[in-house]
Nucleic acid binder design. Sequence first.
DNA 1: ACACAATACCTCCGCGCCGAGGTATATCGT
DNA 2: ACGATATACCTCGGCGCGGAGGTATTGTGT
Lengths: 174, 174
Amino acid sequence: MVLELAILGFLADQPLHGYDLKRRIAHLTGHVRPIADGTLYPAIKRLERAGLLTRRVEPGAGAAPRQMLALTGPGRAELDRRLREPDEMEISDENRWFVLLAFLRHLDDPAARDQVLRRRLAFLRTPSSFFYEGDRPVRAEEVADPYRQGMLTIARATSQAELRWLGEMLGEPE
Amino acid sequence: MVLELAILGFLADQPLHGYDLKRRIAHLTGHVRPIADGTLYPAIKRLERAGLLTRRVEPGAGAAPRQMLALTGPGRAELDRRLREPDEMEISDENRWFVLLAFLRHLDDPAARDQVLRRRLAFLRTPSSFFYEGDRPVRAEEVADPYRQGMLTIARATSQAELRWLGEMLGEPE
DNA sequence: ACACAATACCTCCGCGCCGAGGTATATCGT
DNA sequence: ACGATATACCTCGGCGCGGAGGTATTGTGT
């Protein structure tokens, strides 16, 4: 799902061959979660079968021939749709959110882009805690374990940095 | 994988029934990535078959009877092993890393705990970039797109907060 | 009385992902 | 000549995961 978004997004940047795509995806998400050949190539096939991309064989640079991949009209439309209407996980899971963010510029409508940022803002503003004692959220000050304290510290720093950035982007007071 | 770690970890905190486990996991990872029944219960069965946990039926509080789950000796040992020797993804993927961090206190050996933190420190220190132009990493200042700039800003804030925390924990100068 | 929500557990199916393995070409060092 | 490395693509099997659906019990609202 997020892989397909990444493929469509990178191809919207420019036509690429599979190997190059693999490298780019590896850097975007893969520094963190490497992507296997057995995942990428079937995904490309799926998208091709769905008519979202085309391939054209070209001589390879110093090796086997390349299959240059390019987005089709429907592919472009599908990217637009996925960026405009991300499902909840693409908003909440930071890994997926970052992939979305990497290609959000491909959404032509500024209002639609802001709408996506506002969904993330709403998510970040909903109170939440990692740990609960029964129904009661355990507050940061109550956590004795230094590792769990670290989690809360780091999570708070991230969330504040992102809230600040979202505030700037949306021209809102924090 | 990370789900099994979460189950073992929460049960090391205290014996729990499946429904409670579900709620706790939902808060730990699930605020971000909800966990389905069809994922949790088979996972519990797997761990039970492997002899890592036992169940004991108890009358339910206001409903159906509960299956109280408790860690066995081998279960405890397996948790220890998974915390001591996390694979690379558990270090690099923030979602998985946080689950590991949530239960790291269950690792009795302080040196082993520090060792895990040092692996994360090494990971955070390896230079990396989200975007590459050919082989050259695209530096933050070069990124024109405000959304990609946001990614870099947020990622930097997170990483700095975590480096600061790791520095404190390990008693090192930054 | 009846419906509904919450508690508590379960199974099946389809699908995407991963790892292992395989094929082929071109370049560089020795 | 030979092996190693990088480029470039592919298939297959197993498995975990998610979603849809199902069962049963108890308490609450009307």
